[in-house]
Amino acid sequence: MLPEQAAPEAPAVDAGTGLADDGALPPAASDGAALDDAAAAAIARLYGEPLLRMPNDLYIPPDALEIFLDAFEGPLDLLLYLIRKQNFNILDIPMAQVTLQYLVYVEQIRKSNLELAAEYLLMAAMLIEIKSRMLLPKRENDLVEDVGDPRAELVRRLLEYEQIKIAALNLGAMPQEGRDFLRPSLPVEQSLEPVWPQVDPHDLQRAWLDVLRRARLTQHHRIGRQELSVREHMSAILRTLQSQRFVEFGELFAGQETVPIVVVHFVALLELAKETLVEITQAEPFAPIYVRLAYSPA
């Protein structure tokens, strides 16, 4: 058996100061206290690390510390804001107060952004012109021809802009896809085995009729010569009418198979009517047409 070894003695620590006899902090306590002191003395944090002193080459642009409490979309928006904020009557605008407040705002934005101030300066010139026209005394000619209130055109533009702005706010409050809600989507895994569509008898019938239609367009038509006699057909019609008193017009063409034969048979009927050998009669309009032998006294 090995002889029992004595455990190393821990350094004595003062209960009041927390220091060891040699004046050093305990290992664990010294690290935590150092981190706390660094965090307390840090003036800022850069990427999570405490920054103990201000860098010498630090540059802060002047625009970085500017705070805009109200953002206006144009001179009309600013002018409408000034009127509504002080509860002025838009139909009776106090031009002196509104123009003064407007010029103060324009002077502020002119110092920082000259391009943005150009549009506002144009409206400021318009306000000053209206104010000047209201201060000028009226001459006798002006009393005869009253030109109206110089503020009328400005009031009309303000009212139209306010209506459009309210309509835009109402449209913006409506739910929009991608901003207020998202359409649910579920990915569907496609099977690797091909799925063939089912063909019903009607589809097969339509395909077959389409094949027949194309076959008729490409088939060859042969024209043959056939000798037909009008006299023979005239004799056949007379024989048919001798056995019957009246024959309906369609029955005369019974047994005629081809179109040329039907045409010749009809020409023969017209020749008999021309020679007054047959009569074609009809009882009333749209009634059936009948053919009979012409009446000849004995």
Rank of each mutant, 00 (worst) to 15 (best):
A6I: 15
P8K: 03
P8V: 03
A10V: 02
A12K: 00
D14E: 08
D21S: 11
G23T: 01
P26G: 15
P26H: 15
A28N: 08
A39H: 11
G48R: 02
E49W: 02
P50A: 01
L51Y: 07
L52Q: 11
L52H: 06
N56W: 02
N56T: 14
Y59C: 05
I60D: 13
I60R: 14
F68I: 03
A71D: 14
G74F: 00
P75M: 03
L76H: 06
L76K: 07
I83W: 00
R84C: 08
Q86W: 06
N87L: 10
A96C: 07
L103M: 12
L103A: 13
R110P: 03
K111I: 13
S112I: 13
N113C: 09
L116A: 13
A118F: 06
A118S: 06
E119S: 13
Y120I: 00
L122T: 15
L122P: 03
A125D: 12
M126W: 00
I128W: 15
I130R: 00
S132E: 14
R139P: 08
E145W: 06
E145M: 11
E145R: 10
G148N: 07
E153C: 04
E153R: 07
K165H: 10
A167L: 09
G172K: 09
A173R: 09
M174S: 12
P175T: 02
Q176D: 05
Q176I: 08
E177M: 04
E177V: 02
E189I: 13
P194E: 05
Q205M: 05
A207T: 01
L209N: 03
L212S: 03
R214W: 00
A215Q: 12
H221D: 10
R222K: 13
G224A: 15
R225A: 05
Q226F: 09
Q226C: 10
Q226N: 11
E227G: 14
S229W: 05
M234F: 08
M234A: 09
S235G: 08
L241Q: 05
Q242M: 09
R245A: 15
F246T: 04
V247D: 08
V247Y: 00
Q256W: 06
E257K: 12
V259A: 14
H265S: 10
V267A: 12
L269V: 08
E275L: 07
E275H: 08
L277D: 03
I289S: 09
L293A: 02
L293V: 00
A294V: 04
Y295L: 06
